[in-house]
Design a protein around this nucleic acid. Structure first.
Length: 230
DNA sequence: GGCCAGGACACCA
DNA sequence: TGGTGTCATGGC
């Protein structure tokens, strides 16, 4: 096999077992927390490298300002938008990102989410990735949680958990980790939804950056060897 | 008072 | 291609 083609992940027959174990222990996570598809999209952008608690504060701000539809948000002056976004951090950047998304929606879909989510998944993903401020994780979160498309989301918790369970290299590319899940699971948006949410829940509780609480981790019985965190 | 949080991007070699 | 700095608030 050519050097550049070495797999960064191993074959994973136990991937679905992981899921059942997590679900049995933690139960349904009811993701994505958001009342409408637009809220899900906004939340996906606002939660970038940011605690969800802070995002909720911002969503409350936007709700009070009646700015939780594309049309209403577009009418908000930039200075006002920036002010409302403060609690979730990076507020100047995120104000621009939201504007960029609204621009895509307006230019390609007449400002209508109903039209946007009629587009084929691959095309919509490409368009979302072309928006400055929307990367792979955010695009896939939008596709899965707002669009209910069978696209597995890879976030930092998922990456960390896979690495600590020796299922992937620490620096494996996004698409490889995504393929790992998509190739080993039924192509079911609801399953992808719950699985990713469960991985985040496990990550938050047991798989911290510095001191992973591995003995309490629900996935522990699956482990063959002690962790290597390097 | 430091660390972390459901990233993305520009810039550099 | 891969590494590094930047963006920023709030909770623990």
């Amino acid at each position: 096999m050519p050097r550049h083609n070495h797999p960064a992940v191993f074959s994973v027959p136990q991937l679905y077992r992981f899921y059942r174990q997590l679900f049995a222990q933690l139960g349904p996570q009811h993701w994505w927390p958001g009342r409408t598809r637009f809220e899900v999209i906004i939340g996906a952008i606002l939660t970038q490298n940011t605690n969800w608690i802070n995002v909720e504060k911002t969503l409350r701000n936007l709700r009070r300002a009646s700015a939780l539809t594309p049309q209403e948000l577009a009418r908000l002056p930039q200075t006002e938008l920036t002010r409302l976004l403060r609690p979730s951090g990076y507020f100047r950047q995120k104000a621009r990102k939201l504007r960029h998304f609204l621009h895509l929606l307006q230019q390609h879909y007449q400002g209508l989410l109903s039209r946007m989510f009629r587009a084929p998944t691959a095309r919509l993903r490409t368009e979302l990735l072309a928006v400055n401020g929307i990367g792979e994780e955010t695009a896939d979160s939008i596709l899965l949680y707002a669009g209910r498309r069978p696209v597995f989301v890879i976030d930092s918790y998922t990456r960390r958990i896979l690495h600590r369970h020796r299922l992937a290299r620490a620096n494996a590319p996004y698409w490889q980790l995504q393929r790992l899940f998509e190739a080993n699971l039924p192509r079911d948006p609801q399953l992808y939804n719950e699985y990713h949410a469960l991985l985040v829940a496990v990550g938050k509780r047991y798989c911290h950056r510095r001191e992973p609480d591995c003995r309490a981790c629900p996935l522990r019985p699956e482990l063959e060897k002690p962790y290597e965190t390097a």
